[in-house]
Amino acid sequence: MARVVPPARPRKLAKVPFVELADGRLQGVVSSGSDIERVYVSSVAAGTYAFACSTNNNRPCGGARGWFCNHIRALITEAVLQYGAERVTRYLRVDLGDEQPTAHTIADAMTATGPSEASSTAAASVFSRFLRHLAYLELAPSTLPVPEMQWFPPTRAVA
């Protein structure tokens, strides 16, 4: 009966409004510090750690040339807050050796392998997943019972 996926942990969303472990990537959206109309769409692939960062208007991020930019680092930090370091480590298939899993050690272990830049083809799909995520706030609540929610009890376990 118990849920397979523990609930996300609450975190502040101002800097990184969206982060998810999906499509074989850690991916999400990072707000620009200087332009409120702009967001960066960033991702790191599980296993290869191939990374990408570009704006929602498809301009490449200047900081992500050959190296994890600050957006990707912020994404890792927030993913660890939301899902817990263990789950992020497992999903990205990061080998930490004897090190404690933290946002810092996860990022370092990935950069140490010299990952390559991925093409930014995923950006459009990540951004549309973000918009889909935002759209959940626009949906009206309902007072029709959903009996199948009995399969999704609360749990005190945390991610």
Partner: peptide, 21 residues
């Protein structure tokens, strides 16, 4: 029983769900 449900972004959790419902 009386029931209310709401779709939510996954970052709204715990006590936060009451304000949607």
């Amino acid at each position: 029983r009386a029931t209310v449900s709401a779709p939510k972004p996954d970052t709204v959790v715990g006590v936060g769900v009451w304000q949607l419902l």
